[in-house]
């Protein structure tokens, strides 16, 4: 497990360093994820060695958002004043995003499928 955590930390560190060096808006952990994919594609056996730890962390991914959520304490006044705007924006906006994303993929999948058929 310690090995796996070390690998994750090293990848994140590499990600943070390249994010700073290249001055790109991509966050370090995301570059770290790409680094780890590249490592896994070079050393496929590493996936099994990492899977127990990565599954462990990902199973409780929600826990990691709790400290940020408790920050609601700091903004009780803002939330109280503008609760309707915030609630509608969050609920309706999220519903809309879900539907648009899924339907767009469905549509383009269908189109690429038709193109492939036409080529044959």
């Amino acid at each position: 497990m310690l090995n796996a955590i070390a690998v994750l930390l090293v990848c994140q560190l590499l990600g943070e360093i390249s994010s700073q060096l290249l001055a790109i808006p991509v966050p370090g952990p995301v570059i770290g994820m790409v680094v780890l994919i590249l490592i896994l594609r070079t050393v496929p056996t590493a996936a099994d060695a990492l899977s127990e730890t990565s599954n462990g962390i990902l199973r409780h991914l929600s826990l990691l958002f709790v400290p940020a959520g408790v920050g609601v304490m700091l903004h009780a006044a803002t939330v109280k004043q503008q609760w309707l705007a915030i609630m509608v924006s969050v609920v309706l906006g999220t519903a809309l995003t879900l539907a648009v994303t899924a339907l767009m993929i469905k549509l383009t999948l269908h189109l690429t499928h038709l193109c492939r058929k036409a080529q044959r």
Binding site: I5, L8, P29, L40, L50
Partner: peptide, 14 residues
């Protein structure tokens, strides 16, 4: 751990 967890997403992706 939000950081390392993001890195860990590489495993299911792979």
């Amino acid at each position: 751990f939000l950081g390392p967890a993001t890195v860990a997403l590489a495993v299911p992706l792979y």
